[in-house]
Design a protein around this nucleic acid. Structure first.
Lengths: 189, 189
DNA sequence: ATCTCTATGTATAATAG
DNA sequence: TCTATTATACATAGAGA
């Protein structure tokens, strides 16, 4: 289960090469995007795969072309402005989605609690549970809520972190949320 | 002398950002060249630094130009297709998060059911609930699961809907599910 | 083939000079 | 600020399902 030191040469084995290609392609794209985000620069990567007919391009063909077409660098301020706008857009989007989720969660929870109550009150089998009473129901309601709370607590944490900056734990979460938001934006736009 | 977990956002500190930029730029170029050599594919990377007037290009400006020229010559529809790559990347990322959530949800659910069982068996008040037996427990377990299932069912629905496009109703759901998934992944991970 | 797991190599954040 | 060092996070080769 060990890992050999990598020999820097064409991988002979066909399937091994493909596996490596996929892994490293993914890693590369991640690196590019990280560099771009962390340092606020534009960057792109193009990979011609032997397995796909078309090259893999990040962030997009247009961007890549634009990036390379302008061999003279953009004024820095413009770049930053552009990036800020994009980030602001994503943040806004995330905020909206958070609200939606929150509302939906609340509604669902209420529904479920109501249903649970009904079950207990009308309970089959002589209503043993019904007689067991409030504390049982409460305990179980609590159970039902555990899941729902996980999400919301997280949101609270994010908000609490909140002078606009995020703690180190939260940033990943935020990052993921933003990724999701971006995808959603793509799907909806 | 430790190394903190990296926060995926623009590095505020100016000199730190520059240092990171230089390190990561170098690393990125190395990755590109490794991928190219190991897998025998052509690839290029372009990075616009805010510090250099001209972008850093690998393997060479000429090669990159040639590589990107091929992109330029693609029919526009193909270009648009390729434009989806960033989105595809994000989607892939989200898909993974979904998996994580799913796994975690399952684990959590088991934990909770176990706890519920204990409660019922050791139940206070003469064990009315305990005697009420399996069907009560089952019903309640079902309740507990509702929350956990909500996200997954929606995912299923999406998949079933599934030629890759999403109906207008599903779009919103998708948004909620993905945001939730991301947040939950953060909370659980 | 494709995914997962994990031991290990590699990249790099923080620190020192 | 740049370079070197080191501890730690991250990427991934190889193996198994």
């Amino acid at each position: 289960m060990a890992r050999k030191k990598v020999k820097l040469a064409l991988i002979a084995n066909d399937s091994a090469r493909k596996a490596t290609f996929n892994k490293r392609k993914k890693g590369l794209i991640k690196k590019v995007s990280e560099l771009s985000v962390l340092c606020g620069v534009s960057a792109c990567a193009v990979v011609y795969g032997p397995y796909e007919a078309r090259p893999i391009v990040w962030p997009s063909a247009q961007d890549a072309q634009r990036v390379l077409a302008r061999l003279k660098s953009l004024p820095e301020t413009e770049q930053n402005k552009k990036m800020m706008n994009q980030e602001a857009f994503l943040r806004q989007r995330v905020a909206k989605l958070r609200e939606q989720v929150k509302r939906q969660e609340r509604e669902n929870r209420e529904e479920e609690l109501k249903e649970l109550m009904s079950r207990c009150v009308d309970g089959e089998g002589g209503g043993a549970l019904a007689r067991a009473g409030v504390e049982e129901v409460t305990a179980l309601a609590c159970m039902v809520e555990v899941k729902a709370k996980a999400v919301q607590e997280r949101m609270e944490a994010l908000r609490r972190g909140g002078d606009g900056r995020f703690g180190k734990e939260e940033k990943l979460v935020l990052g993921e949320a933003e990724v999701a938001a971006a995808v959603v934006a793509g799907a909806c736009g």
